[in-house]
Lab assay of single mutants.
Amino acid sequence: VTLFVALYDYEARTEDDLSAHKGEKFQILNSSEGDWWEARSLTTGETGYIPSNYVAPV
């Protein structure tokens, strides 16, 4: 399991995006899409895309 933590708040801009709150942890499901990674929030269980530069490894 690849875990990352949000460094900043991010507000989803499309229905495919996933909002993130600073300190929230995510499981990365797919990081092969360049700057946008598919992730699952460990807080809400929701999945979507987050900007890779907004997260760091735990």
Rank of each mutant, 00 (worst) to 15 (best):
N30E: 07
V55P: 01
T2V: 13
T2Y: 11
A20K: 01
D17F: 14
I50G: 00
D16I: 12
T2I: 14
E46A: 13
S31A: 13
A12P: 11
S41G: 01
W37T: 02
V1N: 14
R13A: 11
L7H: 02
V58W: 11
E38S: 07
F4G: 07
L18G: 01
L42Y: 05
A39H: 00
W37M: 07
L29A: 05
D17R: 13
D16Y: 15
L3T: 09
T44R: 03
E24A: 01
E46S: 09
A56D: 05
L7Q: 04
I28C: 05
T44G: 03
S32G: 11
Q27I: 15
K25D: 01
S19A: 08
K22C: 10
H21I: 11
K22Q: 08
T44W: 01
Y8K: 07
E24Y: 03
T47I: 14
S52F: 07
A6Y: 03
L29M: 07
Y49Q: 07
E15M: 11
R13V: 13
W36K: 14
R13Y: 07
K25P: 05
G45A: 04
L7T: 04
N53D: 10
A12N: 04
F26M: 05
L3E: 10
L42V: 09
E15I: 11
P57Y: 04
L3G: 05
D17W: 09
E15C: 15
N53L: 09
L42W: 05
V1M: 13
G48Y: 05
S19F: 05
T14W: 12
S41R: 10
P57L: 08
I28F: 02
A6F: 08
G23I: 00
D16T: 14
S19H: 10
V5F: 10
T44D: 02
A39V: 15
V5G: 02
V5Q: 07
L7R: 00
D17M: 13
V1P: 13
I50R: 00
Y54C: 15
I28M: 04
F26K: 02
A56E: 10
A39S: 01
V58G: 03
G45P: 00
S52T: 06
P51C: 12
R13S: 10
I50M: 03
F4H: 08
S31M: 15
L7V: 07
G45T: 01
E33Y: 11
Y10M: 04
L18Q: 01
R13L: 11
E11Q: 12
E33I: 11
S41N: 10
E24P: 01
I50S: 01
E33F: 12
T14A: 11
G48H: 01
V5P: 03
T43Y: 08
Y49C: 13
L29P: 04
L18A: 01
S52C: 14
L18P: 00
L29H: 04
G48N: 00
I50L: 12
S52Q: 07
G48Q: 00
T2M: 12
A12M: 04
R13M: 12
G23Y: 04
P51M: 06
R13E: 11
S52N: 06
A12C: 06
S41H: 04
I50W: 02
V1R: 11
E38R: 12
A39N: 00
P51L: 06
D17E: 15
L7G: 02
S52H: 08
W36M: 15
Y8T: 06
V1K: 13
V5K: 03
D35C: 14
V58S: 06
P57Q: 07
Y49L: 14
T14M: 10
A56M: 10
R40S: 04
A6G: 03
A56I: 12
K22D: 02
D35W: 09
K22T: 08
A12D: 02
P51F: 06
S32Q: 12
T2F: 11
D17C: 15
D35R: 07
V1S: 13
E11T: 11
D16S: 14
G34D: 12
G23V: 00
W36E: 04
E15W: 09
T2R: 12
A20M: 15
D35P: 09
Y49M: 13
G48L: 04
F4D: 03
G23R: 00
R40C: 09
N30T: 08
